[in-house]
Design a binder for these strands. Structure first.
Lengths: 339, 339
DNA sequence: CTGAAAGCGCTTACAG
DNA sequence: CTGAAAGCGCTTACAG
């Protein structure tokens, strides 16, 4: 991909050998300066570092990774990045891993099973030392392929009963229960749940429904929406709910987007929030505190999930096993004006 | 990072040599099957492909990249991914490049100049064949280092007067002018502009201001906000504008987020939109059509920017120079209820 | 159409 | 603390 019309440009980079020659040491010593500086003599160190600066040398990590069998690469598989709740996790993990000289390869799994298969091949071809999964890694061939690599596998944003390796997340069922309890305590008896077609959103719905049922309250639900969620889904669902008999007196949404949509539609239809209808979101996205009224929601510390994942990886690289197989970061109910 | 407590697991992957042995061909032939299948005999092809399937062989791209001096890697530098307007561009580029067997490395430049420097080193260490920049690549050392690699450099989301190499974007000045013209034509004479501290947002503001001035109208502006933008910024800015004498009769925001915030705050203060105050956003984010009233805004085809960037890279890899140095994807004024 | 051989730029026991 | 040497897993002229 080197541009033909610029082929005259000097494009060959200095190698470790050239640095070694300039510093009058062996290539091995330059390698040590780069990777284990503490074991090289101070004067040598300085001479080599000068040579590195002088030549503008940047190590070739393809060569380094091949020789050392350590790619210093972590693969993160997410459904998408356009409007993803996982982005904060990926971002904080990327920053934390960068300090340990690891780089994150983002891979998009959205777009169906065929794409997922080629995504996995593409990932494995780079020999990542760890693979972070958000969303679902379904059973089967792919999972077996990934596990077979021996790489650390971290599942995030959920607490699987049987983690593949290590998991960092929280209980979606518990979230549903907690919201149901709060809404019940506030006197709500005609709940509506908006869900999506993901296992985690469905787990929240189940938790909610079970907790309401235990209190003798039946829960209505809208057909699961596709992800990513949207304002439009919330508006649409609330409008539909109003069309069928008695409107709900509270709505538990599967995202703050949907919840904001419910807020807008309810207001347009003359409902007062929270008096006539209480609204609960999920995610505590940045805008949640700025809606009118401000959104009550469930806060997940996505950045913390990323930080913990990074720590696990770094510890493993240093030969320390993780303290446990499952890390529960919990969640927090944030009560604001809408419920 | 191989987990100590699982060290008994078979973690060595099959190599190209083993595939070759199984298929009873030379390693070179296996390599050809992988990279230039059209030049190998049909029976040989089949035998090798069987062996690949049987062994579950996945090529090692560190080795391949080292040997061929082609990393098949494209670096994308973005400020952040948590709430970034560039994500659609990155996503569409990633998908388009995947089909050509290129992988995108996402790098986060946010967090100041020191981080940017180490980000660039990290990128260069992987020897990407191309580097995509969104946001700003300021002059100086870093830019020189990047250009020095000989990699294709694509600047996106703007039309620089002197592109480093190739640029894909649109004119922010023209956007500002177009919005000003539309608002003026709608009879608005007390405009307010909300901007951010980025060169592109400032260019839009300048374009807007100049176009209004040419029509004899002065433009008020709020102090530039930091990115990423938010609902809160819009609410705050509109509240502040109302505190100082005559409120604006139209607001041009630097994002749909801000615009939505203005909508909310205006409504809360009893303003009618668009009668009392017209609101224009920027970006045509997914939620823009679902606000109340629906948001008038400027649509940018971010995915198209990504697709064009991918095409340029693929063409270059095939030895075809891009048709031109600057690709203008334009923009579209989307008139909905708010202006 | 296929193979033998050299080499890509590093790292890492091993020896001193 | 440092160097010589082998090797990581591929690709690619070159020769046939």
């Amino acid at each position: 991909m080197s541009p033909p019309h610029r082929s005259a440009v000097q494009t060959t980079r200095p190698t470790l050998h050239e640095v070694a020659r300039l510093a009058r040491v062996s290539p091995a010593t330059v390698s040590r300066v780069l990777n284990t500086p503490q074991i090289v003599a101070p004067e040598t160190l300085e001479r080599v570092q000068d040579a590195i600066k002088q030549t503008g040398y940047v190590p070739n990590l393809m060569a380094g990774g091949l020789a050392s069998n350590r790619s210093r690469l972590v693969a993160a598989i997410v459904p998408n990045i356009a409007r993803s709740i996982f982005n904060e996790t990926v971002e904080s993990m990327t920053v934390a891993l960068a300090e340990a000289n690891y780089q994150v390869m983002l891979s998009l799994s959205g777009g169906g099973d065929e794409r997922m298969a080629s995504v996995v091949d593409t990932i494995l071809a780079r020999r990542p030392e760890a693979i972070i999964v958000t969303g679902n890694l379904r059973e089967g061939e792919l999972k077996r392929r990934i596990v077979g690599t021996g790489a650390t596998v971290i599942e995030t944003w959920d607490l699987p009963a049987e983690p593949i390796d290590v998991a960092v997340g929280f209980s979606h069922t518990a979230v549903g229960q907690a919201v149901a309890q709060a809404l019940y305590a506030a006197g709500r008896r005609r709940p509506l749940v908006l869900s999506t077609n993901t296992p985690r959103a469905l787990a929240r719905e189940q938790g909610f429904r079970a907790a309401m049922e235990a209190r003798g309250v039946a829960t209505a639900s809208a057909a699961p929406f596709p992800v990513p969620t949207s304002l439009a889904q919330g508006r649409e669902a609330f409008a539909a709910a109003c069309a069928h008999g008695a409107p709900p007196d509270c709505v538990f949404c599967s995202s703050d987007w949907q919840a904001h949509g419910v807020l807008i539609e309810a207001q347009k239809r003359g409902f007062k929030t929270p008096e006539d209808v209480a609204v609960f979101g999920f995610g505590d996205l940045e805008f949640a505190e700025s809606t009118e009224p401000a959104l009550s929601t469930v806060r997940i510390d996505g950045a913390e999930i990323g930080r913990i994942a990074a720590k696990i990886l770094i510890d493993r690289a240093a030969g320390r096993a993780p303290e446990r197989a499952v890390f529960d970061v919990g969640f927090e109910l944030v009560r604001r004006g809408s419920a």
